[in-house]
Design a binder for these strands. Structure first.
Length: 568
DNA sequence: GCAGTTTGCGCC
DNA sequence: AAAGGGCGCAAACTGC
């Protein structure tokens, strides 16, 4: 059964409307106004788990979770709209229910409300329900909201049926919707984070916390040593201009201040500069201010944005959730009696390539848990060369140390190479490419379009032609990588959706973190073994769902640990 | 003086 | 011959 549900766009956020609908979005019962939509969802969920068809999970799920309501399945109209718009070549157009409804009726389309930067938890404690969630449905007051849900849903089903592979697209929509539920649950649970351990790390590396907000002891000391090594009185190592000038005065020309460039330069001040950058990064990115802002009641609660990246990866706002520095993972410690089951897909992207391209040689290599080692023989006995060849092909690298392994890649894995080259060529011509399930890249930007068009302009200056070529090739690298990254992201979302279902059969384990190809489940100790088994099975099932019968293996590297820092 | 852009880092 | 894809964030820098 399916139930359309929406808040009253005009009223207080508790009020809403519900109505049973058929598989194709027609009315299957009376429309009902309810005084407390969340209570209504809870009751209906209790009595048999419908599929909820609603404007946006992100708008309702946090409130439901605060009231202890967990929803089994949904169809997220906004996320689906975004997938369909991209498929149809209109990536980036407004995707709210109101926008979709307006497009359907040829009316002016409202802009989406910005997702906005998340208020830090100190200002907006998640433990305290906000009086109003932002209404992102953008539905105008004179529209019957249930009618809008039904009509947009029915239209989406028609548009899905019109895609080249409706079954695949349906899976994509289901996975994306399930992922939106998982994201809300992870934000709700939060990642266990020990503020005291975090402080300990900071003090070991930076010295005691300065009380007045000035830079900590070790940074000041390193800056002083750096100045001394350069023979000057003082400098601000954060200022590129000052650093470049100081090295120049010392007779060293720096091509840039990138770490990998600096590492190739022989000067006694270079290691000091690198060390300073390391300290500075920790201090400014994950220092005491970060901890005070983002760690509340022993939990780090970022806000995830499902579909926030064009490739289908999640984005996160607030606290740099998807860039938790490895050294800080020591502060991620399970509650007493609990463990983290940490799982990451080993070498996901080359496996995705092997499955998409149905390349027999690469598929054979996926039988191994370490593809690169399995392929070392092909790459003159070097695991590193194998890795360079595979990654270089997927990222569109051409020169440098990758040239030789890329040539081998081309010769030994022609089907895989052809898939990537085709994607790159399509991109260079300004065309769209799609993932395995149908997620579609954005059309070329204005800059790309004029650059690609500029190629044809006979009287364009050489300089302009060269720039055009560069821009077109950059687009080619993007589309080349898009097909792989987007398919990897959807494989991971399918895995997450399956795992979320499985975990519901246990009492206790919670998804607390997801990062592209890695999941973290916080589980009572006695459930860790069962969770481990579930993850491994879900990975295999995800491969079958996304690719059908395929010899390609998707092994997971799974560890049960008390501390996330010990996971790898 | 403020807002937008650039640079560089680190995560995948 | 050849600048490897995606992101978020902080500080410096640039332009108005």
């Amino acid at each position: 059964m399916q139930i359309a549900a929406t808040y009253d766009p005009e009223g207080f956020r508790d009020r809403g409307f519900v109505q049973a609908i058929t598989d194709d979005g027609a009315e299957a019962g009376p429309a009902r106004a309810v005084a407390d939509l969340e209570a209504e969802v809870a009751a209906l969920e209790e009595s048999g788990g419908p599929r909820w068809v609603w404007p946006a999970t992100a708008d309702i799920a946090p409130a439901l979770l605060r009231r202890g309501v967990r929803v089994d399945r949904c169809h997220d109209l906004a996320l689906t709209e975004a997938l369909l718009l991209a498929y149809e070549g209109h990536c980036g157009e407004p995707r709210s229910l109101g926008a979709a409804w307006a497009r359907l009726h040829g009316l002016p389309v409202p802009e989406d409300r910005a997702e906005g930067t998340m208020a830090a938890p100190a200002d907006n404690p998640t433990t305290q329900p906000a009086l109003f969630e932002p209404d992102r449905s953008r539905l105008s007051a004179d529209v019957d909201p249930l009618r809008a849900v039904r009509e947009v849903y029915a239209e989406q089903l028609r548009r899905i049926a019109a895609t080249a592979n409706p079954g695949a697209f349906r899976l994509l929509v289901a996975a994306e919707s399930a992922a939106s539920l998982a994201a809300a649950e992870m934000a709700h649970h939060g990642l266990p984070w020990r503020a005291d351990v975090h402080s300990q790390i900071l003090e070991e590396v930076l010295g005691p916390r300065p009380l007045d907000g000035s830079p900590p002891r070790e940074m000041v000391a390193m800056a002083a040593r750096l100045a001394e090594a350069l023979g000057i009185r003082a400098l601000n190592p954060d200022s590129a201009a000052q650093v470049t000038k100081a090295f120049s005065d010392a007779g060293v020309k720096l091509p840039s201040l990138r770490r990998w460039e600096l590492e190739g330069i022989d000067h006694p001040a270079i290691p000091l500069l690198l060390k300073y950058k390391e300290l500075s990064r920790l201090y400014s990115f994950n220092g005491w201010v970060w901890r005070d802002t983002w760690v509340v009641d022993g939990r780090f609660r970022p806000e995830y944005s499902v579909g926030g990246v064009v490739t289908g990866r999640w984005a996160a706002r607030g606290g740099g959730a998807l860039q938790i520095a490895r050294r800080l993972r020591k502060a991620v410690i399970a509650d007493p009696g609990w463990l983290f089951v940490s799982a990451d897909a080993a070498q996901l992207e080359p496996r995705i390539l092997a499955a998409m391209a149905q390349d027999p040689g690469m598929a054979e290599a996926t039988q191994s848990d370490d593809m690169y080692s399995a392929l070392a023989g092909v790459f003159e006995g070097s695991r590193d060369q194998a890795k360079l060849g595979l990654l270089g092909a997927m990222y569109g690298q051409t020169g440098g140390g990758a040239a030789a392994p890329l040539a081998l890649m081309r010769r030994r894995f022609p089907k895989a190479t052809a898939l990537l080259d085709d994607a790159a060529r399509e991109g260079e011509r300004g065309r769209l490419v799609r993932s395995q399930l149908g997620r579609t890249c954005p059309p070329p930007s204005q800059r790309w379009q004029s650059a690609i068009a500029g190629d044809a302009e006979a009287d364009a200056a050489d300089d302009s032609n060269r720039r055009s070529g560069q821009v077109a090739r950059a687009r080619g690298r993007f589309t080349r990588n898009f097909v792989i990254q987007a398919t990897a992201a959807e494989w991971a979302e399918v895995l997450l959706a399956l795992l979320r279902q499985q975990l519901r059969t246990l009492d206790g384990p919670q998804l607390v973190f997801f990062q592209h190809d890695e999941v973290l489940v916080h589980a009572p100790r006695e459930h860790a073994a069962a969770v481990t088994e579930m993850i491994i099975q879900c990975a295999t099932a995800a491969g079958r769902l996304v690719f059908g019968p395929s010899p390609v293996r998707f092994p997971m590297s799974v560890h049960s640990v008390e501390c996330y820092g010990d996971a790898k």
